[in-house]
């Protein structure tokens, strides 16, 4: 039987595409996941926890490893081994933490000889670290040969402002009623049992939310309420404590009111 040309050509084309597809599936598979937000403000964080959180930021959201190595000279950026001790000796009168913070927020201020001025500001998009993350990252870098002494107050309060990306996000207006949301917080939602929110509540079980709107986006808060484990746990607090059933117990209005209230906490 004579095979029609269309069948032969079709089979050949499928074979070619199949080969490419098979090969593409055979090599290492690397996804690029959106970075999770780290929130440490209001929590009691030990230096060790801070350093660990900073290391995570270094490897993930900070994208530092694309250029920097620790214990190995990079082609695009300097080796960071021992930066915790070296940083305090670069400029007379400037502490290690001040040097590191300035290098992160204004990378052009301290260019290492032989390297181009290519590092982006870490608190601006696209890296867009928030204040907690810059704090943790500074602690991690200090730990590389130095002493971890950075405090949250050392990080300028302006850090991370607009870090979620401006544009349409900045225009977001929540439809909920903040006043009604406060009632949900203290009543039906039971949030007050674990969280402090300004003058309301005092429980230390969960993070202090008194300034949560400064450091978190509505997207994060909405996700955190519905999926506490999936949104991540604030460093220094035990995992799995926050109940996962708010999606069932709160009505849509309750939910939006609660988020609107939380977004007033600045």
């Amino acid at each position: 039987m004579r095979v029609p040309v269309a069948v032969k050509v079709g089979a050949f084309a499928l074979f070619v595409m199949g080969t490419y597809t098979y090969y593409a599936n055979s090599i290492p598979q690397i996804q690029s996941k959106p970075p999770a937000e780290l929130s440490l403000e209001g929590g009691n964080v030990t230096p060790a926890q801070l350093v660990k959180a900073g290391e995570e930021t270094f490897k993930t959201k900070g994208t530092c490893e694309i250029c920097h190595r620790i214990g190995q000279k990079g082609t695009r950026a300097p080796d960071l081994a021992g930066i915790g001790s070296r940083a305090g000796k670069v400029k007379a009168g400037q502490s290690a933490k001040a040097y590191i913070i300035e290098s992160l927020l204004q990378p052009g201020a301290h260019l290492v000889e032989g390297y181009p001025n290519i590092m982006p500001q870490v608190d601006k998009p696209p890296i867009a670290l928030n204040r907690s993350e810059v704090w943790a990252l500074t602690a991690f870098l200090e730990s590389l040969g130095g002493t971890v002494d950075v405090k949250l107050d050392d990080i300028p309060k302006t850090v991370g402002a607009g870090a979620a990306g401006g544009g349409a996000t900045a225009e977001l207006k929540l439809p909920g009623d903040a006043k009604a949301g406060e009632a949900i917080f203290t009543g039906k939602g039971g949030c007050i049992a674990c969280h402090k929110a300004g003058k309301i509540g005092a429980s230390p079980v969960g993070p202090d939310l008194s300034q949560i709107a400064k450091i978190q986006t509505p997207d994060y808060l909405m996700r955190k309420i519905l999926d506490p484990a999936g949104a991540g746990t604030v460093a220094g607090f035990p995992k799995g404590v926050m109940p996962p059933m708010f999606g069932q117990t709160l009505t849509a209005k309750d939910y939006m009111d609660l988020v609107a209230f939380l977004m007033t906490l600045k």
């Binding site: 598979q29 690397i30 996804q31 690029s32 998009p125 696209p126 867009a128 979620a164 990306g165 996000t169």
Partner: peptide, 18 residues
């Protein structure tokens, strides 16, 4: 839009080559 408008959809993950 790079550095301006973040993708916060469920599809924000950029898939692997396979």
């Amino acid at each position: 839009v790079y550095g301006v408008m973040r993708d916060s959809s469920v599809d924000a993950v950029t898939p692997a080559i396979g």
